[in-house]
């Protein structure tokens, strides 16, 4: 028995070394280590031999099993390594990567999202309003005189029923105050319309962002802090803001904001209009609400508005606004990531 085992062990190790490939080796493994392999069968014969011989035979068998397994696994690893090497040997890592077709978001969407994120950080919520609105919301409530040129048929789109397409998103200031009590902090991205001849710098439909903050004790300092924070977040910490006195019917005092940022250009760029909400606007809201929730003696606020199309143009370095409405995919595909 002992001799047989030793003989078998030699044969089995020879079988491993003569195995030329992985599949032959697998047969060898099966032959010896399989459920009904040679080593198992020899182990079963243990019952037939004398009790005192059993430890010796058992030891031999164990030795056989462990040495066979060790050599087999070493050989298997050689074959595996060879196969693995072969797999990567044939691979040209410089071949271009393959990908699924990439989509993109419109640059205006990306900018709106960025702006929304900044204002949310400051505690603003969103608000919305209709594109079709009445002259009251678009002009009267915003302290615009009855004969103001902006109301002209040359400048504003009207529907046959006398309503109009809003010329600015400021209409939502009124709608928001009409619906909610102060304090109120809202942002409104949306479309506005003006009867401009479409050219490199004008679209008849454009995109604006309205910002309104109303409450007790809101001061010009809050407007300044908010505007500066916003532009620095958007354009980098080195962005400079300049406030220039200006005129808007619905704010008093009113300013235009010029921005200078290494991100854009070395020149001052006129980017936004802003101001403290005119008391007449609060009075119009009160009249509509039928209460004194927005008593200008107690409540103050600031409003802030800017065109997103122009900002996108500056950020992307395009000089024709029509690229934003032309929707050429060669242009749009540039905007696959986040702003």
């Amino acid at each position: 028995m002992q001799a047989l085992i030793e003989q078998q062990e030699k044969e089995s190790l020879a079988a491993i070394s003569s195995a030329s490939n992985d599949s032959v080796l697998r047969e060898v493994r099966l032959l010896y280590l399989g459920k009904s392999g040679l080593i198992s069968r020899m182990s079963e014969q243990m019952r037939a031999i004398a009790k005192e011989e059993r430890p010796i035979v058992g030891k031999l068998l164990n030795h056989w099993r462990s040495s066979f397994t060790q050599v087999l696994e070493a050989k298997e690893k050689i074959f595996r390594d060879q196969a693995d090497a072969l797999l990567f040997e044939s691979l040209d890592p410089t071949l271009p990567g393959t990908t699924r077709c990439q989509g993109s978001l419109h640059p205006l969407t990306l900018l709106i999202d960025r702006v929304v994120a900044i204002y949310r950080r400051l505690g603003f919520a969103m608000a919305e309003g209709p594109d079709i609105d009445s002259p009251w919301y678009c002009f009267d409530a915003l302290n615009t005189p009855a004969d103001h040129p902006a109301r002209n048929e040359q400048d504003t789109f009207y529907l046959p029923d006398g309503r109009l397409l809003r010329t600015h998103t400021s209409t939502v200031q009124i709608r928001a105050m009409e619906q909610a009590l102060p304090p109120l902090r809202i942002i409104v991205p949306g479309s506005a319309y003006r009867r401009d001849e479409v050219d490199a710098t004008h679209l008849s439909q454009f995109t604006q962002m309205e910002v309104l903050c109303v409450g007790e004790g809101i001061t010009l300092g809050d407007l300044k802090g908010t505007a500066e924070f916003f532009f620095r977040e958007l354009l980098g910490v080195n962005t400079e803001c300049r406030f220039r006195p200006h005129f808007f019917p619905f704010t008093e005092p009113s300013f235009e904001i010029d921005i200078r940022s290494s991100h854009l250009s070395k020149k001052w760029l006129e980017l936004a209009g802003c101001g403290m909400v005119d008391p007449a606007v609060f009075e119009a809201v009160n009249q509509k609400r039928g209460d004194h929730a927005y008593d200008p003696e107690k409540i103050s606020g600031f409003a802030f508005g800017f065109g997103l199309d122009r900002l996108v143009m500056m950020l992307t370095g395009i000089d024709d606004i029509r690229m934003l409405s032309e929707n050429d995919l060669r242009f749009l595909k540039r905007f696959t990531g986040e702003y």
Binding site: L122, G123, F124, A125, M126, A127, P183, R185, I186, T219, L220, G221, D222, K224, G225, T226, E228, F229, R242, F243, P245, E252, P253, S254, F255
Partner: peptide, 25 residues
């Protein structure tokens, strides 16, 4: 009041930050 700030200069106003949460709408 607008005249006063125009003459005083908004650049001399110190910016202020408030932070009150707004409920999501």
């Amino acid at each position: 009041i607008e005249e006063i700030i125009r003459l005083y200069g908004i650049e001399r106003i110190s910016p202020r930050y408030f932070s009150i949460p707004s409920e999501s709408s």
